[in-house]
Simulated scan of single mutants.
Amino acid sequence: MYKNIIIAVDLSHGEAGKELIDRAKALIDDGGTVRLVHVLEDVPSYIAAELPRDLNDRRQAEAKVELGLLAKEVSGNVVSEVRTGAASSQIIQAAEDHGADLIMIASHRPGLSDYFIGSTAARVVRHAQCSVLIAR
C-alpha cells in the first residue's frame, strides 16, 4: 500500500510507538521504507543557561539509542532519525524531505485546546501533504 512511511515516535510513550510499528508492518509494501522520527523540543534559552552544556548532545544520543532499539522490531528497510525543534513542523518536514506517502502518529487524550485529537497530531493533519494515520 505505501512505499515510504514516517512514524512519529514519542519516546516518553514507548507503547504507542510499538503499536504504530506493528501497524506499519501491515501497511508497508515490499521494498518500502519505514522511518522512525523522534523530535526533541528546543529548551528555552532562559532554562538552557542553567543546564549542562552537553545536555542536548546527551539527549540526542539517548534518543538515537532508543530509536535504534525500536527499529530492530521492524523487518525490512528501517531508518531512524532524531530532529530538534517544534514536533509538528519537524514531522511534516521529515515527510517532505523523504517523500513520505503516509505519516503515522499517536494521539494522547485530548485537552480543552484540541478536543478530538492531540495538538501535535492536529497540526500534522492540517498541514501534511500526504496521508496521515492517527492512532489512539
Score class of each variant (00 low, 15 high):
residue 48 A to G: 07
residue 37 V to K: 09
residue 119 S to H: 05
residue 29 D to C: 12
residue 75 S to F: 06
residue 3 K to L: 06
residue 82 V to I: 10
residue 27 L to W: 04
residue 52 P to A: 14
residue 48 A to S: 15
residue 19 E to Q: 09
residue 5 I to K: 09
residue 66 E to V: 05
residue 1 M to W: 10
residue 70 L to C: 04
residue 78 V to F: 06
residue 107 S to N: 03
residue 23 R to S: 05
residue 15 E to Q: 12
residue 85 G to K: 04
residue 13 H to C: 02
residue 18 K to C: 00
residue 114 D to G: 13
residue 39 V to R: 03
residue 82 V to M: 03
residue 130 C to H: 15
residue 95 A to H: 08
residue 19 E to I: 03
residue 30 D to Y: 09
residue 106 A to L: 02
residue 97 D to G: 07
residue 47 I to D: 00
residue 93 Q to L: 14
residue 79 V to P: 08
residue 15 E to K: 03
residue 26 A to S: 13
residue 133 L to I: 10
residue 51 L to M: 15
residue 61 A to W: 01
residue 95 A to Y: 10
residue 5 I to F: 12
residue 85 G to D: 05
residue 16 A to L: 04
residue 13 H to A: 02
residue 111 G to E: 00
residue 19 E to D: 01
residue 30 D to Q: 11
residue 48 A to C: 07
residue 48 A to N: 10
residue 29 D to I: 07
residue 76 G to A: 09
residue 44 P to R: 04
residue 68 G to R: 01
residue 66 E to R: 13
residue 92 I to G: 01
residue 36 L to I: 10
residue 126 R to Y: 07
residue 77 N to G: 07
residue 87 A to I: 04
residue 91 I to E: 06
residue 108 H to R: 07
residue 64 K to G: 02
residue 20 L to I: 02
residue 118 G to S: 02
residue 128 A to W: 13
residue 14 G to F: 00
residue 69 L to Q: 11
residue 98 H to T: 14
residue 103 I to L: 07
residue 48 A to K: 15
residue 131 S to N: 14
residue 103 I to M: 08
residue 96 E to Y: 01
residue 26 A to R: 13
residue 97 D to S: 07
residue 108 H to K: 07
residue 33 T to G: 05
residue 101 D to R: 08
residue 51 L to N: 04
residue 71 A to V: 06
residue 99 G to S: 15
residue 84 T to W: 00
residue 66 E to L: 15
residue 83 R to M: 12
residue 73 E to N: 05
residue 74 V to D: 00
residue 96 E to T: 14
residue 125 V to Q: 10
residue 57 D to E: 15
residue 15 E to I: 06
residue 3 K to G: 15
residue 82 V to L: 06
residue 7 I to D: 02
residue 53 R to D: 13
residue 67 L to A: 03
residue 115 Y to W: 03
residue 89 S to R: 09
residue 26 A to M: 10
residue 123 R to Q: 15
residue 105 I to W: 04
residue 3 K to S: 15
residue 112 L to D: 00
residue 30 D to W: 01
residue 130 C to G: 14
residue 37 V to C: 09
residue 14 G to R: 01
residue 135 A to T: 15
residue 93 Q to C: 07
residue 78 V to K: 06
residue 130 C to L: 10
residue 130 C to N: 11
residue 135 A to L: 14
residue 8 A to S: 13
residue 124 V to L: 10
residue 7 I to W: 05
residue 106 A to T: 01
residue 27 L to E: 11
residue 131 S to Q: 11
residue 107 S to D: 09
residue 34 V to N: 09
residue 64 K to L: 10
residue 61 A to H: 08
residue 39 V to K: 02
residue 63 A to G: 09
residue 104 M to A: 11
residue 18 K to D: 04
residue 28 I to K: 07
residue 72 K to Q: 12
residue 134 I to G: 12
residue 39 V to Q: 01
residue 133 L to T: 08
residue 59 R to H: 11
residue 56 N to K: 15
residue 133 L to P: 01
residue 125 V to P: 12
residue 25 K to N: 02
residue 46 Y to P: 03
residue 128 A to R: 13
residue 133 L to A: 11
residue 84 T to E: 11
residue 54 D to V: 13
residue 78 V to D: 10
residue 7 I to G: 08
residue 65 V to H: 01
residue 68 G to C: 07
residue 1 M to A: 14
residue 37 V to I: 13
residue 49 A to V: 14
residue 18 K to T: 08
